[in-house]
Structures are given as C-alpha cells and as structure tokens.
Write a protein that binds this DNA or RNA. Structure first.
Length: 291
DNA sequence: CACTTGACCTGTCCGC
DNA sequence: TGCGGACAGGTCAAGT
C-alpha cells in the first residue's frame, strides 16, 4: 500500500538507476494501466532520455528530455521494478525480494531502455496507472491543483497542520488525515501509527482535539514518516522498492496490523475497528475518545 | 455541503 | 478439498 514513504523510497531508487537512460520500447497488456496511444509513445517517449525522477504526494514522476513525463500512481499493489540486462532475478537476496524474473503475470507495462535494461510496472489489482503527458501540464491535473502540503517540507509547521485540519473541523481525525487535499501522502498505515503516537482516538472530531495534541500529532506524523523512509517503507503484502526489495517498517509498527497484540506503551490489547471505511488500529487505553 | 458508500480489481484467507 | 464470501485499502464518482 504505497504511501509517502514507499513512493519516496521508489523515487530515490529510480533516480539512481534511471537518469540518462534512453527509452527504446514500451509494451502494455492492460489499457487502463497505460492509456496512451502508440503514436504518443513513439513521438514523445521513444528515444527520449530520463532527466529526473520526482515525487509529489503518492504520485511518482519520471521526466524525459522530450518535455514529457510519466505520471504514475501505484495505488494499492503497484510496483516499479528496475532490472539491468545482466540481472533479471531479483535483488540477489531471495528473502528481500517478492518478485522473481520479470515480466510476470502482474506486469502491466514493460519499458525497455537502449542498454537492454527494463523498468516494469507491476500491478496485481490493476488499480494503479501510469501515463505520459507534457511535464508542464502536470500541475494542471485536478489532483495536483487540490492536493495539500508535503508533511516533511520545512514549511509544514504545527500551525500549518492546525490550519489545514480546521478545514474539516467536524470530521473524524482519521478521515481527515487520509484526505489528500488536507495533507499529502498519508495513508492507512501512517495515519494509525501517528494517531497512536499522539494518543488520539481515530474517531475524535477534529475540533475536540486540544491545541497541544495537534502539536504532538505534527511531531508524530513527521517522526513516523521519516522513520518509515529510513526503513525503506512498509511491506505488508505487495510493496517493493525499485530493486524489488521489501521495506522493513512493519517490524517497527506500534499498532498497524497488530490487533490482539499488546500496546508497546501500556501492554493493553490493541483493537481493530472501522473508521472512514478502513480497518483502523488503536490502543483503547492510550487513545480515548473525549466526552 | 459534508460525509459515507460503491466501484475499480485480484489474491488470500476463513468458515462450512 | 472446494467454494463462497469477506477483506485488503487509494481515489474518484455517486448516493444519502
């Protein structure tokens, strides 16, 4: 479930691997995964070179010297895996890799570079997508027009968080943290983890959260996201980085997917409830609803 | 207008 | 062992 730390990890990996590579062909098996016409691909991608790899929110951007870019959303089960011509057998450490020789049956798009290396867009559930568009037009996409601030940018202060949250002051905090127009990049894993850190019940109405707890929540969001980037993201089921390797944040998770186990702070049994339509994990003792 | 639910998909796991 | 159904969770569209 790629969220900000996972997409950031893929971005860093691709940036090291792809810059300067020249595209030689693109194949895809599922039109929704890559809807561009062959004519567009031939004109704006083939023979173009990768000049940059970026991330905004959970979206990955690969810029080409044709002034076109690939805009990529991994959604739930998307992977972007690079393979050199010499090594198409995973990262070399079988336990670190979830993917073997590619393409496999989850491969939706297969990009080949002129040196014989490949970039595979794999997506078991077909929710993800990538498409080619003019770099200058990316900021005009509806999603980018309304997406909120990057939570790890220096301008994202506790005051900014408070101001953003107030836009939906009568909603449950969990739903608001998942709203990409409020803050960019937080998903189900890191919403649960930061709310546990700040001792806030996920169903708490935003206006019922005291100011000092907003400050704590701000710290926790940044702490959790930074730690997750350090650990290479969270591999629950599908997620892998640009080399096919798993992330290890799940080993450090305090509540996410730990229902029935004990809270690392107070040893109370962790509960799983439903909030904002999602499985939501919390410690019933540390995270109480105000009343 | 604000919030919730359903759709998009496939693979896995659970109970019968 | 097979089979149906619930569940996984990012985002947009549709419904309440």
């Amino acid at each position: 479930m790629p969220e900000l730390p996972e997409v950031e990890t893929v971005k860093s990996g691709l940036k090291k691997l792809l810059i300067g590579k020249q595209l030689s062909s693109i194949e895809n098996d599922w039109p929704k995964s890559f809807p561009n016409s062959k004519a567009d691909v031939d004109k704006f991608a083939i023979k173009a070179r990768v000049v940059n790899v970026r991330r905004r929110a959970k979206v990955l951007l690969i810029d080409l010297d044709s002034k076109y870019s690939f805009v990529i959303h991994l959604k739930m089960t998307g992977q972007m895996v690079y393979r050199s011509k010499q090594n198409n057998f995973g990262a070399g450490h079988p336990n670190d890799s979830l993917v073997g020789k590619l393409p496999d049956k989850s491969t939706r798009v297969n990009i080949e570079f002129s040196d014989g290396s490949h970039l595979f867009f794999n997506d078991q559930r077909k929710f993800g997508w990538m498409r080619l568009m003019p770099t200058a037009m990316i900021k005009e996409l509806d999603f980018f027009k309304k997406v909120g601030p990057e939570p790890l940018s220096s301008s994202f202060t506790a005051a900014v968080l408070a101001e953003r949250l107030n836009r939906r002051s009568r909603s449950a905090i969990k739903a608001v943290l998942l709203d990409q127009s409020v803050i960019a990049g937080i998903g189900n894993i890191y919403a649960d983890e930061s709310l546990w850190g700040a001792k806030i019940h996920p169903l708490t109405t935003v206006c019922d959260i005291p100011k000092n707890k907003i400050k704590t929540l701000h710290n926790e969001i940044q702490f959790v996201l930074k730690l997750a980037i350090e650990k290479g993201g969270s591999t629950d089921k599908n997620y892998v980085d640009a080399e096919g390797k798993k992330g290890s944040y799940m080993d450090f998770a305090r509540v996410f997917r730990r229902e029935g186990l004990s809270c690392p702070r107070c040893a109370t049994t962790i509960l799983k409830i439903r909030a904002a339509g999602r499985g939501t994990h919390l410690c019933p003792k540390c995270q109480k609803l105000p009343r």
